[in-house]
Design a protein around this nucleic acid. Structure first.
Length: 424
RNA sequence: GGAGAGGUGGGUGAGUGGCUGAAACCAACAGUUUGCUAAACUGUCGUAGGGGGUAACCCUUACCGGGGGUUCGAAUCCCCCCCUCUCCGCCA
């Protein structure tokens, strides 16, 4: 959520930035400023009237103490009128504040200067590419065939016990999952991230904190009886660990990592390219999160990108990094890099990580601040990245490393799997 | 789920209708003293909103788990909810 004072002081800049999202926010921004003006006016009126009432109460208190009951009663004249005035003004203020809040919730984050102009994913900009397309020959198979051939994952069973999009990992398939999770967590902790095991369900306040709510409730599984949401990513519980927290400047940056399953309804997005592991309702992911000093957040974003880059290199996967254009970027993000691994048999790129700087957009909602050198409160910048999401990594590992005899496990992973090949 | 106790500032903890935004102590920060460390002393020590000032700052309102209510006036009384602790029940 953008801060109103920031909007007021940087109106043109905000509008110009938001224009990259291919929508004109002029009317909304003007409305926000108008409502804020109204808010200030009402507040001033209420404040002075309340000060008056408070003064009268004080006088009554003194008169009562002195035993002057009649004098006290006299003071009460006019109080009712004043109280009615205050009550009316407060009701108006509540409406104004609510309208303002609702409007603010609808304004996405302002894209950073280097975010490319563009409407769709086609206009994203590739900024880095590593490795080569694997030579697989004519016998290459997509991962859903390999999975069946080597009995690694069972989609039918998952459908039986739960539903489509909930796979059951079996034998070496299950072991590969565990290996990847441990590998990713070890790499993250070695890079200084503290490991957490957060809850897999969160309350409504947490949903608002990181920006899933309002608006995106359709994307989360909701447990109505207990009013809880299944997390769509570890970003939600991890970042919310610092909701309503005031940090010391010396605490920054806070580096967290955690493995969790992620639950996504993917309502409406079940089109093409969803076979096998390409899109699931439940998947595993290791996430890295940082709370950063605003002056350092973009340097830290680079570090995080570097970290993810190394993971993919250690796994030996052909991949590229793209900078998302304004039209493709998430609501809460100011700058996002997506990582795409090559899928050798599908012959297309699969998104395996999304690493973003949210600047103060989440921190404002979270009320996560630190005291700066001048003793002033300042919002932190929040950042996060997948490091990494498993299913598409598995898909691309299986496809890229296949030959007639089986599937080769990358060296970095062998200590974790305990085997270096998957065979029949 | 049932019964009881309780939720106050960074922490401990006082405070049952007005002089309490909140004692005291601890922690923290700044300074004085000191050969260093320590100790002692002095001072500062919440957040947010509104108004004023170039600014240091000043005035004002709100906030004592959350939300309502009673009252001229609520941390203090009443109602609802949430959470924590103890005992009981249930259970991995």
């Amino acid at each position: 959520m953008l801060e109103v004072p920031y909007i007021r002081e940087n109106k043109e800049k905000v509008l110009a930035g938001l224009a990259k999202r291919n929508k004109d926010f002029t009317a909304q921004i003007e409305n926000i400023i108008r409502l804020d003006d109204e808010r200030k006016l009402l507040t001033t009126a209420i404040n002075s009237k309340e000060a008056e009432l408070k003064q009268i109460s004080k006088v009554i208190g003194e008169l009562m103490k002195a035993g002057d009951k009649e004098g006290a009663e006299l003071q009460k004249n006019g109080v009712t009128v004043m109280k009615t005035f205050v009550k009316d003004a407060q009701e108006k203020l509540a409406v104004v504040e609510n309208d303002l809040q609702q409007l603010l919730y609808q304004i996405p984050n302002v894209p950073n200067n280097i975010v490319p102009q563009g409407k769709t994913a086609d206009e994203n900009v590739e900024v880095y590419r590593w490795g080569n397309t694997p030579e697989l020959g004519a016998h290459k198979k997509p991962h859903w065939e390999l999975i069946e051939e080597y009995d690694l994952i069972d989609f039918e069973l998952g459908t039986k016990i739960t539903g489509a999009g909930f796979p059951v990992y079996k034998g070496k398939g299950a072991r590969l999952q565990r290996a990847l999770i441990n590998f990713f967590l070890d790499e993250a902790t070695a890079a200084g991230y503290r490991e957490f095991q957060p809850p897999h369900m969160v309350n409504e306040a947490s949903g608002y904190g990181t920006g899933q709510l309002p608006d995106k409730e359709g994307q989360m599984y909701y447990v109505g009886v207990d009013d809880l949401y299944l997390i769509p990513t570890a970003e939600v519980p991890l970042t919310n660990l610092y909701r309503d927290v005031i940090l010391k400047e010396s605490d920054l940056p806070v580096k967290m990592t955690g493995y969790t399953p992620c639950f996504r309804r993917e309502a409406g997005s079940w089109g093409a390219h969803v076979r096998g592991l390409n899109r699931l309702h439940q998947f595993d992911k290791v996430e890295i999160v940082q709370l950063a000093h605003p002056d350092q957040s973009y340097a830290i974003l680079e570090h995080m990108v570097e970290h993810v880059k190394q993971l993919l290199q250690k796994l030996g996967l052909h991949f590229r990094i793209i900078r998302l254009c304004g039209g493709d970027m998430g609501f809460t993000s100011a700058l996002t890099y997506d990582f795409e691994a090559w899928s050798g048999a599908q012959e297309r790129w699969l998104e395996v990580s999304s690493t973003s700087n949210f600047e103060t957009f989440q921190a404002n909602r979270l009320k996560c601040r630190f005291k700066n050198a001048d003793g002033k409160m300042q919002y932190v910048h929040t950042l996060n990245g997948s490091a990494l999401a498993l299913p598409r990594i598995v898909a691309s590992l299986l496809e890229n490393n296949q030959d007639e005899h089986g599937i080769r496990i990358p060296d970095a992973l062998v200590p974790y799997t305990g085997f270096d090949r998957i065979t029949r």
